[in-house]
Amino acid sequence: MYEGGRPHEKTQDDAFIAAQVAAQLEQNPFLDSGSVSVSVQQRRVVLEGVVDTPEASLRAEKDALSIEGVYACENRLEIGGSNHGRVRDG
């Protein structure tokens, strides 16, 4: 019986998704990927760190949601030191 996933591979899947999101963020010219950390748990991405503009935060969130297998993105990125975190389903 197929139950929509392989429980023993969830950690591996999350690690793979985290690597893909990080690689996508590195390609984003509007973002210093070194200032953004990516974590994934049960296909939910969490972005943390500091970005320069609201646009950079939104682009990072869109980049994360564009990765196949991502269920949702919790954007905890701070803009200029103020917290604008939110959760969006993908």
Rank of each mutant, 00 (worst) to 15 (best):
L25G: 04
G81K: 07
E74R: 10
L58A: 03
A23N: 09
E26G: 05
R6H: 15
R44Y: 03
Q12S: 10
V70T: 06
P54N: 06
N75Y: 14
P54Y: 05
V40Y: 02
F30R: 05
E26P: 01
D14R: 15
A64D: 08
E74N: 12
V21H: 00
V70C: 06
T53G: 02
A64P: 04
D14W: 09
A22C: 02
A23R: 14
K62R: 12
Q20R: 11
R43P: 00
G90I: 07
Q24T: 08
I79D: 00
P7D: 13
S57W: 03
R76D: 08
E68P: 04
R76A: 07
G4M: 00
L31G: 03
V21S: 01
G81I: 09
V38F: 03
F16Y: 15
R86K: 14
G81D: 09
V87C: 08
K10Q: 15
G85C: 03
S33F: 13
G85F: 02
K10L: 14
Q41S: 05
F16P: 00
R88S: 10
A23D: 10
T53L: 08
S57F: 05
E74F: 14
A19V: 14
S57P: 01
A72W: 00
L58T: 10
R76L: 03
R59L: 08
Q12H: 14
A72P: 07
E68C: 05
V45I: 11
G85V: 02
I67A: 00
L31S: 02
E55W: 05
P29C: 12
S82D: 11
I79N: 07
R6T: 15
R86N: 11
Q20S: 14
G69Q: 04
G49E: 08
C73I: 13
R76I: 01
R6N: 07
S66A: 08
C73V: 15
E61H: 06
E9F: 11
T11D: 13
L25E: 04
A64S: 06
D63I: 02
D52W: 02
A64C: 07
V46S: 14
D14I: 10
T11K: 10
G81C: 01
R6E: 13
S33H: 15
I79E: 06
A15P: 03
A72Q: 11
Q42D: 15
D13S: 08
D63V: 06
A60D: 01
S66T: 09
D52L: 02
E61V: 07
T53V: 04
E74W: 05
P7N: 07
I17L: 15
D13N: 04
E48K: 09
I17C: 12
C73W: 03
S82K: 12
R59Y: 02
V21I: 03
E3M: 15
G49R: 10
